[in-house]
Write a protein that binds this DNA or RNA. Structure first.
Lengths: 165, 165
DNA sequence: TTATAGCTTCACAAATTTCTGAAAGAAGCG
DNA sequence: CGCTTCTTTCAGAAATTTGTGAAGCTATAA
């Protein structure tokens, strides 16, 4: 073989996946750079990369990485950690953590509900439009609760599939 | 009273709700104009409006309405109907229909799954990264199924709340 | 303490997205 | 059959979003 023993990871393959998956995330509403950063983390072996590594792999400036990571941390899709005694920050995707972030999106649902309640109040609960908004509100409240129990079921299901984490 | 007997709907209140709710939709990833159009339909008494009505209420050109509606129809959030014998098109938000559109987003999930499968294949199922992707894939497959059953539960729940549709 | 590696912030340039006006295309109606 | 009314398409203007380079901060290390 001409290949060195380790480092089986073909950067090209990795990149192809990263860009492709990122594209899907973007289509689902995530801004581009956060999408790429997240995909890169997901495809990394350790599940964590430093700012520099991300910048190099994605061919973007430190500033871009910084912005993307800030976004991802804000929506709880990654966590930042700092190896004690190094000013290198590393960003990690925590399996569970981001499923929660993705599915719950609690904040968003809550805000929808608020907007709907406001609408019902100002249009009148006994008008046709008010009734429609009321039903929509009920739907979101239902979903909110369902998602919670779904995540419990997921944890059980996962353990069954992959063994206790 | 100085108010005429009907038409209790204060255009100002309606507009306030429309813009506020649309803003939430936008934040969740919907393009702006589709968001506004959808909110306007949701807040209408009949649940359906014509192109002209939408354009007037939102103060936008027919072209903008056309584009927005095309988008919404494509993702099944509204349906178009044409009163027989009029070239006026009207757009309707069908309660159930759009919940499904919102939650299922089948196409999107499917594409995520495809991208993940591709990643597992090219990174190797027995690498750490491959294992992470495999688990993520399992999560989506799980969610896909759960959403389906959730919608069944919703229909039951709704009937309990509002009576048979 | 000072030097320095590394992250962040900011102003601006580039690319993308979004809306409009104008013209072209359907479909009922006389 | 043409007229009229409505919708769609298209090119371009306007606004927004994204990413960069450079300067500024912070905290480790010497």
């Amino acid at each position: 073989m001409t290949e060195p023993k380790a480092a089986e990871r073909d950067p090209e393959s990795v990149s192809r996946f990263v860009e492709h998956f990122a594209a899907q995330l973007v289509e689902a509403g995530l801004p581009r750079m956060p999408g790429r950063v997240f995909a890169a983390l997901l495809a990394s072996d350790t599940g964590a990369l430093t700012s520099a590594e991300l910048g190099e792999q994605l061919k973007v400036s430190p500033a871009a990485v910084s912005g993307a990571v800030r976004y991802l941390a804000q929506v709880h899709m990654v966590s930042r950690e700092r190896a004690p005694g190094s000013r290198r920050e590393r960003y990690r995707v925590h399996g569970d953590q981001w499923y929660e972030a993705l599915t719950s999106r609690e904040a968003i649902i809550k805000r929808w509900e608020d907007a709907l309640r406001e609408g019902v109040a100002s249009l009148g609960a006994d008008t046709p439009a008010g009734r429609r908004l009321t039903e929509t509100l009920a739907f979101f409240e239902f979903v909110e609760h369902e998602v919670e129990t779904m995540m419990e079921r997921w944890r059980a299901h996962r353990e069954r599939l992959f063994g206790t984490p």
